[in-house]
Design a binder for these strands. Structure first.
Length: 465
RNA sequence: GGCGGCGUAGCCAAGUGGACUAAGGCGGCGGAUUGCAAAUCCGCUAUUCCCCGGUUCGAAUCCGGGCGUCGCCUCCA
């Protein structure tokens, strides 16, 4: 499979270091605020990458961290006058709930920065011992002049960085672009003890440490939002490679932004749509479809109405799935059948090309059309086979399909009764009454469809699945 | 100022040198089906890919220039 690598700025054949094992580190949230659509897009891309690699037969270790100590969290806590840990817990909980609702496959591990302080200290110490890190005031900084390839990920040149610097450098820094590995304690802030005094980790070090802790160094894929390329990922590379004298991550996977009203969605500007709010109005499948119908590296300009479209697009799929007969054999068996191989191949062809999910979706929609055709032509077996293939591929893309709305038995019986009575009315050509029933049920969220083989009903609404 | 992304039908969006007479979705129009709907099927809906030059037998796709737009360079997925 071809994967775009930010480091080389081109698509490369993906070859894991130790097949069939693949290690992925997905940069998670700094939990200063609520998770929004932009986060979900990045983590969804990671989820699909992981699922697809598993589909290809790899054994994936998927690590997604929470950075639960940081300036912004402390500020937030101060503003709300609560313990900083509560801010972190609250947002982690909201994220985890949203991730489940979105049907993200849980990470192998969800490490937290605050549970890896000891190792962070050790790594900072290593950098000190090597003369790459130096103290200034109560803090420890990384000296970028000691790491010649600094800037290789983001394509920045040292001179440009110095020239373009817009913030007043902290006193004592040798170079304005040097960054903090360890931040000295200030009154009222959380701290840990270290050989360099009381303090807390700088922003980037936790990811260097946690990624290699779980995946070793080097490891296969490091991912995250594009806004992390600089300085976060650049600095991670510098720290890890300087400290251990070997390459850090092999493929860098960066996901495009979600914009809103033409501007980047961002916690710091407050311009963002919390995913939890969206999940109250839209099904997770629609959100998944919306996000996957654009290639992961292309920026998306979010508009609410686009989710309505995705909702309708998903109905096209679920309508077919609902009407097609169930496959006679388990899906895993069915997908081996010769008539499905072309579809699988087309799907893979798209996905192998840098995870082209819009192309993958197009294949599925082609299958829907053919499946409907089969249904219309009374070729039930063909429809069932296509249904099996679709279920299989939808699963690779992470769509949650199995979850039918469970209704109480008595609701089934009651609706059965109403449909039966209405059927009699239709036979007696009392269409005014039959239509009245249909209209009134629709207003209650129950949709009736008269088909040659009887009347189907579905309950709409409650977008909880 | 430096670096990077994007600009394809009414809208969303693939495709990045030849099977493109440009996927797929939403919407619209016409037809089939239906008691009417819904769902579904069939047909139509970009002689053209922001503009201008160039390279090539051949360009949406490569090169040069321009316009528009967004982002990174400061916390951010």
């Amino acid at each position: 499979m071809q994967l775009y690598n930010t480091l080389t700025r081109k698509k490369e054949a993906f070859e894991p270091l130790n097949p069939p094992k693949v290690g992925i580190y997905m940069c998670g949230m700094t939990v200063q605020d609520r998770p929004h659509l932009g986060h979900m897009r990045a983590f969804l891309a990671g989820d699909v990458l992981r699922r697809y690699l598993e589909y290809k037969g790899y054994d994936v270790s998927y690590i997604q961290n929470f950075t639960d100590i940081d300036d912004k969290i402390i500020h937030r806590a101060r503003r709300e006058n609560v313990d900083w840990r509560q801010i972190a817990e609250r947002n982690i909980t909201e994220y985890l709930r949203a991730a489940e609702a979105m049907n993200f496959k849980p990470a192998t591990f969800f490490p937290r920065a605050t549970l890896h302080i000891q190792e962070i200290i050790e790594t900072v110490q290593t950098l000190m011992d090597q003369g790459i890190a130096y103290p200034a005031g109560d803090s420890i900084y990384f000296d970028i002049s000691k790491f010649p390839s600094y800037g290789k990920l983001s394509g920045k040149k040292l001179e440009d960085l110095l020239a373009g610097y817009r913030v007043e450098p902290a006193p004592g820094k040798r170079n304005p672009a040097d960054f903090a590995l360890w931040k000295g304690w200030k009154e009222g802030e959380p701290y840990w003890h270290s050989p360099f005094g009381k303090g807390r980790p700088g922003w980037h070090i936790e990811c260097s440490v946690m990624s290699t802790h779980y995946l070793g160094q080097p490891f296969d894929i490091h991912g995250g939002g594009s806004d992390l390329i600089f300085p976060h990922h650049e600095n991670e590379i510098a720290q890890a490679e300087a400290a251990h004298g070997k390459a850090f991550a092999r493929y860098w996977f960066h996901v495009g932004f979600v914009k809103q009203a033409g501007e980047k969605m961002s916690k710091s500007t407050g311009l963002f749509t919390p995913i939890t709010d969206l999940l109250q109005r839209y099904s997770s499948q629609a959100i998944r479809h919306y996000l996957l119908s654009t290639h992961y590296r292309t920026p998306i300009d979010f508009e609410m109405e686009h989710l309505d479209r995705s909702e309708r697009a998903m109905e096209r799929i679920t309508n077919f799935l609902r009407k097609a007969p169930d496959p006679k054999n388990p899906v895993e068996e069915m997908v081996k059948s010769p008539e499905l191989q072309d579809w699988l191949q087309k799907f893979e062809q798209a996905m192998d090309d840098d995870l082209n999910t819009p192309g993958g979706l197009a294949v599925i929609f082609e299958m829907v059309r053919q499946g409907n055709e089969a249904l219309q032509a009374q070729r039930g077996d063909d429809a069932a086979a296509l249904k099996a293939g679709m279920i299989f591929l939808m699963n690779v893309l992470g769509f949650r399909l199995e979850e039918k709305e469970r209704t109480d038995l008595w609701v089934d019986d009651l609706l059965g009764l109403i449909v039966e009575v209405r059927q009699i009315l239709r036979q007696e050509k009392r269409f005014d009454l039959a239509d009245l029933i249909r209209d009134r049920l629709k207003a209650l969220g129950v949709v009736l469809e008269d088909t040659p083989s009887g009347t189907l009903w579905t309950i709409k609404g409650s977008p909880s699945s």
